[in-house]
Structures are given as structure tokens and as C-alpha cells.
């Protein structure tokens, strides 16, 4: 037994983070579910209690599914959810198509190049998300750099409509979430035994066939993990559709934001968040599965 496994130290190191997470990670989600059953009211807090008492002190249940009925009945919410899932799925696919060759190139680069290359790819992930989205606003808007350049070179007469399109949202998503895709792919491809591919080639397989039959199947867990890591945050993304998608691109993160900040309807916001959470439960559990499978 290692000394820091002693009961006293062990108890402290477990209980402090455990309690913190219970209060600030688990309780928030439970409260969101709870308040999604309440109704909006003026006052502090801006939602009705779930249990009330009548004149004789009898407790009554005031919770209601009205918010969920609203979400199901209003096509705005339904299409926002469907749109979010579709845009996130397309973004994930695009990130995979760009990320796979990049991860492969890093994994096959000479040993002493790999870590610097990986750092180079991951560094943008740690520089401000908001600034990276803003950078694309500056490039894509009608008076932005791309349009100015094309106009001055005479390729176009009127500025292209680049910003406030779904195209701009895809660009932003891939740009911002690419590192999430690269990391698990690289981890998988780097461990791949090169002698397997050599053996396939010696036995007469073409390079393309060797890739399809050996490299790709062996990197599948990395593909799954990378796709889930991009898909889950992309479904609920707010900043990218807000700044690059404009009014035309409807996503659920924007809906939640405006329910909360413009309509100040906390119960409906909570219901929107709860449904989103339910949509994400399956991908989240799958992610946990691939992570634990990968762990030593």
C-alpha cells in the first residue's frame, strides 16, 4: 500500500472534489430538470414553486409539463433541435474528413517532429474561442478581407454573401472543433503497428486496400471518440451560429440563449436545456464507453 493511500489522506482527497462536483455538477442538472416543470412568474426567483400549500396547509403538487408541451407543439423548437443535430452531424463529418489525413500525417512523421506538430495543431484550441470566431467574421462579411480581395482583383462585381449562411457555420465549427477530432485520432494512429501494413503490402495488397482493410478498421475507436467529442458540443453551440449564422441559421443553443436573456423565461429555458440533455445522453454514454475502453 502506498503511503498516500492512508485512510485520512484518502478521505480528504476524495471528499473535497466529490462534494464540489455533487454541488456544482450534479445538483445543477437536477435543478434544471426541476425548474423545467415550473412556470414563469414575476419576482425573485422568476419561477413558481413546485409544491404549494392551500389555506388549510395541505401540500399540493404544482409542477406541470406545460413547457414540454409548448416545445413539442411549436415548430420553432422542433426545427431548432433537428437543425442543430443536422448541422452538428455535417460539421462532425467535415472535421473527420479534414482531421483524419492531418492526424495520419502527424502519426507517420519522423519521431522528433510528432510532438511539435501536435502542439502546433492543438495550440489554437487554447487560444480564445470567441476571438477565433470573430476572426472569421472579419474575413467573411461583405466588406471583409475575402470580399475586398476578390472585388479588387475583379473576380466579382458585388460582394459574395458569405456570412450569415450555413456555410459560415460549418467553417466556424470545423475551425473551432478540429483539435477535438485530431487528438483521439492521433492517439490511435500513433499506436498502430506499422509492421501490419508492411505485411499486407508484402502479401500483395495495394496501398489503398491496406488502408481500407487495416489502418481504417484499427483506427475506428479513435474515429468514434473524435466524432463524439465534436458532435456533442456542436449540437448546443451558441457563439458560432450567433456570430456566423445570423438570423437565418436556427440552432437550439441560440433559442435557449434568447429564451433566457430576451424573454427571461427560466422554466422554458430549463425545458429546452433538459430536452437537449436527453438528446445528448446516448452520445455522451458512448463517449464514456470509448474513453474507458481506451484507458489502460
Amino acid at each position: 500500500m502506498s503511503p498516500i493511500d492512508s485512510p485520512a489522506v484518502r478521505r480528504t482527497t476524495v471528499w473535497i472534489p466529490y462534494l464540489w462536483l455533487a454541488v456544482f455538477a450534479l445538483l445543477p442538472l437536477i435543478l434544471t430538470l426541476k425548474i423545467s416543470l415550473a412556470q414563469m412568474q414575476l419576482g425573485v426567483p422568476p419561477y413558481t414553486p413546485l409544491i404549494g400549500a392551500d389555506e388549510v396547509g395541505q401540500k399540493t403538487w404544482l409542477g406541470t409539463l406545460a413547457n414540454y408541451k409548448l416545445l413539442a407543439a411549436d415548430s420553432l423548437y422542433v426545427s431548432a433541435y433537428l437543425n442543430s443535430v443536422r448541422i452538428a452531424a455535417v460539421s462532425t463529418l467535415l472535421a473527420l474528413l479534414l482531421g483524419y489525413p492531418m492526424a495520419y500525417a502527424i502519426a507517420r512523421a519522423p519521431q522528433h517532429w510528432r510532438v511539435p506538430l501536435l502542439m502546433l495543431v492543438l495550440l489554437p484550441f487554447w487560444t480564445s474561442f470567441l476571438i477565433r470566431v470573430y476572426a472569421w467574421v472579419g474575413l467573411l462579411r461583405p466588406t471583409g478581407l475575402i470580399n475586398s480581395a476578390l472585388l479588387s482583383m475583379g473576380f466579382i462585381d458585388t460582394p459574395l454573401r458569405l456570412i450569415n449562411t450555413e456555410f459560415a457555420v460549418y467553417l466556424g465549427m470545423v475551425f473551432c472543433y478540429l483539435p477535438y477530432m485530431l487528438l483521439p485520432l492521433y492517439a490511435r494512429l500513433e499506436k498502430l503497428d506499422a509492421s501490419l501494413i508492411e505485411a499486407a503490402l508484402d502479401l500483395g495488397a495495394t496501398p489503398v486496400r491496406a488502408f481500407w482493410r487495416i489502418t481504417l478498421p484499427l483506427s475506428l475507436p479513435g474515429i468514434y471518440a473524435g466524432c463524439l467529442l465534436v458532435f456533442v458540443p456542436a449540437v448546443g453551440e451558441f457563439v458560432i451560429p450567433e456570430l456566423l449564422g445570423g438570423a437565418d441559421v436556427l440552432m437550439i443553443g441560440k433559442v435557449l440563449w434568447s429564451e433566457f436573456f430576451s424573454n427571461r423565461d427560466w422554466p422554458v429555458s430549463s425545458a429546452v436545456a433538459s430536452v437537449l440533455l436527453v438528446i445528448l445522453v446516448v452520445p455522451l454514454l458512448a463517449l464514456q464507453f470509448y474513453k474507458t475502453e481506451r484507458a489502460p
Binding site: 455533487a22 455538477a25 434544471t32 456533442v232 449540437v235 451558441f238 430549463s270 436545456a273 455522451l284
Partner: peptide
């Protein structure tokens, strides 16, 4: 629980924290 803040969409984390 440790992994939740890492993977959940930020709007959910923000709203649920506020409710707490």
C-alpha cells in the same frame, strides 16, 4: 461527474450553474 463540464454544451452548464 468529473467529465461533465468537459463535454456538456456550455449553454447547459451556464444555465444550470445559475439555477444552483
Amino acid at each position: 461527474l468529473l467529465a461533465t463540464p468537459l463535454v456538456l454544451p456550455e449553454v447547459i452548464i451556464g444555465l444550470s450553474m445559475l439555477l444552483v
